[in-house]
Computed example of a mutant assay.
Amino acid sequence: MRIALATYSTKPRGGVVHTLALAESLARRGHDVTVWTLGRGGDTTFFRPVDKAVRIEAVPFPPVDGEDVGQRIARSIDVLGSALAWHLATAPELPDVVHAQDCISANAALGAARGAGVPLVRTVHHLDAFTTPQLVACHDAAVRHPDALLCVSEAVASEVETAYGLTPTVISGAIDAARFAAASRSDPAARAARRAWRADLGRFILAVGGVEPRKGSLDLLEAWAVLRRHRLDLRDVSLVLAGGETLFDHRAYRAAFDARAAELSAELGAAPVVLGSVDDGVLPSLVAAADVVAFPSTKEGFGMAPLEALAAGVPVVARDLPVLREVLGEAALYGRSVLELAEALGVALGGGAPSPSLGRAVAAGFAWPRAAAQHEEFYTRVARPRTITLPTPDAALIA
C-alpha cells in the first residue's frame, strides 16, 4: 500500500514519536510510506534519524514575528494543507490512505484528501479542552470530518463516543521496549551511561514531557516538596524534568512553575532540574538511571513514557486516570492529589513498587510489529478501491 502519514512537528512530542515508529514499522512490512510534517524553525527532518525506507516531506514553516497562537495554528493548517493538496493533485500515484495524527495535520489534510478522493484517517490521541477559538475549531473539525477515526486506548475511544457520538476503532499505542530494556542491562556501556547521569543528578525522580499544564508539572513539583519536608530519608532525591516545548503557548504556566520552584528553593534548599529536550539517543539511559519515573498528567491518550520506564525496570508513579489504569494496570502506583502522588512516590522510593518483572511484561505487550499489522488491516478496510475506466467496445467490432 501507499500510505501518507501526517504530523504537525519535527520535535519529540508523543504524537510525533508515534508517527515515526508507525511509519518505520509499516515500511518494514513492505509498504510505501511518506511522512508529511511542518519544518518549524528551519528543520528539514525529524529529531532523530528515520529509517531510509520512509520518505520525509518537511514543509518549510518559518517563524513570523508577533504571531499569536491562533494565527500560528491557522497558518500551520494552511501551509501544510497547501503542500499536501499540490502533491496529491500532481503525484503520478495517489496514496491509498492519508493518516493524520493530530488536529493540525488532520485539518490540513481534509480538503487535500477529499479533493483527490483519498480517504482520511485520524488518530485521536486524546481530547483537549481549548479556549483559543482557532484551536477549538481545529480540534472539533479534526474529530468530526475524517473518513475514519482511530484511538490508541479504549478510554479515549469512550470519551470520543460520549462527546461526539462516533465510535472509533481502537489500536493500542506501542513502544520500543527493547531499546529501554537495553539501557538497564549490566553490560559496561549501559552501566557507564547510567552512572554518568547519576554523577550529575544523584538520586532522582524523572518526569518526561516538558513543563506544561496537561503534564501536571506543578502538582509534581508540590508532591516533591512534600517529600522534601516530611521524609528525612528522601531529602537527597532531586526532581528532574525532561522534554521540550510544544507548539502551544504555555509561557504563563512555565512562569508560575519557575516562580514556585524559586520559592521552594529558598524554603528547602533545592530546586528542580529542568533539562529541556534530551537527545533521543541518550533518553533511554536517563530513564534507566532514574529511581522513579513520575507521570502526573491530567489528560493522556496512552502513556508511552511510563511504559518505557517499565521496560527499563524503573518504578512508575502515575496519575490515577482510567487510561493509565488501562495501559499500566497493576505495574504502577497511582495518585490523584498532590498528597497521594507524594505518598506513592515515597512508597516507590522506599522499595514498595510492583516488581520490575511485572512492569517489563506489561511494556512488552505493546509492540510496534503488532500495532503496524493492525493498522495495515484497518487501512485495507478503509481504502477505496481504484476504479479503472475501460474503453467502450466498438459496436461494429462486436457485430
Rank of each mutant, 00 (worst) to 15 (best):
P95F: 06
I56W: 01
G111Q: 04
L127D: 06
G209R: 00
R319C: 11
W197T: 10
W224H: 12
A177N: 05
R28C: 03
A271K: 04
G269P: 02
L206W: 04
P133V: 14
A344V: 08
A113V: 07
V59A: 06
G301N: 13
R13C: 06
V98H: 07
A199N: 12
P92N: 11
A318P: 01
G30M: 02
V16M: 03
H31C: 07
P356Q: 11
G173D: 12
A74S: 14
W36E: 07
Y164D: 15
P119V: 12
S238D: 13
R360M: 05
H139T: 09
N107M: 05
R179N: 00
T7D: 06
G30E: 11
P12S: 13
P315G: 08
L345Y: 09
T34S: 14
A58H: 05
D68C: 00
F47Q: 03
E245L: 03
E67K: 10
A178N: 04
L390M: 09
A100N: 01
E245I: 08
A332R: 01
E376A: 14
A242S: 12
V69D: 15
G111H: 10
G352Q: 11
A6T: 15
V273L: 07
L286Q: 10
I205Y: 00
E154T: 11
G359L: 13
T7Y: 06
A252D: 14
D32A: 10
A266D: 15
A309N: 05
F295L: 08
A373Y: 08
L80S: 13
D233K: 00
D187Q: 13
C151D: 11
G15W: 03
A367K: 03
L135K: 14
C138F: 08
T162Y: 08
A142L: 02
V33I: 08
G81Q: 08
I171C: 05
P63Q: 14
A332C: 05
R185W: 02
L218A: 12
G70A: 07
A182C: 06
D291Y: 07
V160E: 11
G66V: 09
A373N: 00
A373G: 15
E300K: 13
A199D: 10
S186F: 05
P49E: 10
G209V: 03
A312V: 01
L206G: 10
A199K: 12
P213R: 01
T380A: 15
R191E: 15
G39K: 04
D219R: 13
R28V: 00
F130L: 05
G243T: 14
H139Q: 15
V124Y: 10
A225C: 11
V143Y: 07
E245D: 04
F47V: 09
P322K: 07
R386H: 00
F180I: 13
L321G: 12
H126V: 08
P146A: 06
L234Y: 00
D43G: 02
L247W: 02
V287E: 01
L324C: 08
H126N: 07
H230P: 03
A344W: 02
I175T: 04
Y379V: 00
S82Q: 14
V143C: 07
V278M: 02
W36F: 14
H99M: 06
S238N: 04
Q101R: 11
V226M: 00
